[in-house]
């Protein structure tokens, strides 16, 4: 029993990271219809910025967390203003290729600045454990789950109760109508990029004690992408559910199924789900207007 709880908790923690990155994808997709393949690499940059603030500047963990979120938000805002805004009017495919290219550049830049060796920093959660149901659970896992919950609550409040959040919802439902109502659609889109950059930074810093930081953690974005598609691209609850589902599937298949299956379990499940429900679990049924 205690083994099951342990596996469940580590799957949940891993799943929360996927869910956070998937959340970043979905926020951008819902608003701007752009598919951001570089989200995983934004997360990697967030982790590196956190490392720089904590180890390089000696900042407190919490200050560094806020600092990294702000830096990544500003960076993503600028990214939208200077790069992504220019491809409006090109097919979705072009945006996918563009963000794949951005991912390559981010990875190269990170390896030039911070080197190719894995790095680590100390957090208040490192090495601690808490007992749940007789099973020792690492504090790191708990911090990830709690962090995800808090962040989701904040985002929910933002979208539901603030004028900016309502404007964001309006812009994602109908750009033209929002524009006519006096909403600065361009700035709103850039703000959405900023939010998903910030979410990526949180994901990166929460992930850092679980694995080491190196340039390859951006590839985690691919699995998060599978999570977003599994949940139905464009559905925020779907992204969260998909992320957690994939995290759990991975951990359990790693323990109970054959060797090495862990790495592709997420993709096998994704393919099966897509063949049965082409729009993902929570996606709206596809009906195209002619």
């Amino acid at each position: 029993m205690s083994q099951v709880i342990q596996i469940f908790m580590s799957g949940l923690a891993e799943g929360c990271i996927y869910a956070l990155v998937a959340l970043g994808f979905v926020l951008i997709y819902k608003a701007t219809e752009m598919v951001n393949f570089a989200q995983g690499d934004l997360m990697m940059l967030g982790a590196f910025v956190g490392y720089f603030l904590i180890v390089g500047l000696g900042a407190n963990y919490w200050i560094a967390l806020v600092g990294a979120v702000v830096i990544m938000a500003v960076f993503s805002y600028a990214l939208d203003v200077f790069v992504l805004r220019r491809v409006i009017g090109q097919p979705q495919f072009a945006v996918v290729m563009l963000t794949i290219g951005l991912g390559f550049v981010f990875r190269a830049a990170a390896s030039m600045i911070w080197g190719a060796n894995p790095l680590a920093f100390v957090t208040p959660f490192t090495d601690g454990t808490t007992s749940i149901g007789g099973a020792p659970i690492p504090d790191v896992s708990l911090s990830i789950v709690a962090g995800t919950a808090v962040l989701c609550g904040l985002l929910f409040a933002l979208f539901q109760y603030t004028p900016v959040g309502v404007a964001m919802q309006a812009a994602s439902q109908n750009q033209l109508a929002a524009y006519y109502m006096g909403i600065p659609v361009k700035r709103i889109f850039a703000l959405i990029w900023a939010i998903s950059g910030g979410v990526a930074a949180v994901a990166g810093i929460l992930l850092a004690p679980l694995t080491l930081i190196d340039t390859s953690i951006g590839f985690l974005g691919l699995k998060a992408f599978a999570a977003a598609v599994l949940g139905g691209f464009g559905s925020i609850p779907g992204a969260l559910a998909g992320g957690i589902a994939i995290g759990l599937i991975e951990q359990f298949s790693g323990v109970y199924l054959m060797d090495g299956f862990k790495d592709i379990a997420a993709y096998v499940v994704l393919l099966l789900v897509l063949f049965v429900r082409p729009q993902g679990l929570f996606g709206a049924a596809a009906r195209k207007r002619v």
Binding site: R86, Q90, A94, M97, L98, G101, F104, A108, T215
Partner: peptide, 18 residues
Amino acid sequence: QPGLEPGLFGLILIGFIL
């Protein structure tokens, strides 16, 4: 720098699409 080649790849791709 080890990242030179993929970085250039990415830059060229971005340049073409823009």
